[in-house]
Amino acid sequence: MEVSKSDALEIRVSDDVVLVRQAVRKWAIELGFSLVDQTKIITAASELARNTIDYGEGGTVRLESLIDGFRKGLRLIFLDNGPGIADIELALTDGYTSGKGLGLGLSGARRLMSDFRIESRVGDGTRVEITRWK
């Protein structure tokens, strides 16, 4: 698997969520994703970008265009140095929230993407990696 293009964006304030959505849309279009797939990727990115601010005290997202043989993909890696998640299974439960949201961000993003990986250490931060293959 080869990363054909990559970039990183800061996620600090709520306006950055809009910028992340716009960047992800541009990349998804470039890779030739269908409209439905574009919408799924943008929505997942929006959820995770907001989580980065609301729960991770801000962070970054790394965008990567992937080529794996004949297939293409878009990978997004959200990183923060926030308080981390003590119970990942619980955080991935539909409807569970430690804040004031609907509790669909993480679980919803997982359903919308092909691959979903999350690592978190309490006191260290959280890393969420999502990929959608074409």
Partner: peptide, 9 residues
């Protein structure tokens, strides 16, 4: 072109 959980809420 998208409605996420924030807008849905």
């Amino acid at each position: 072109d998208m409605v996420d959980s924030f807008i849905g809420r």
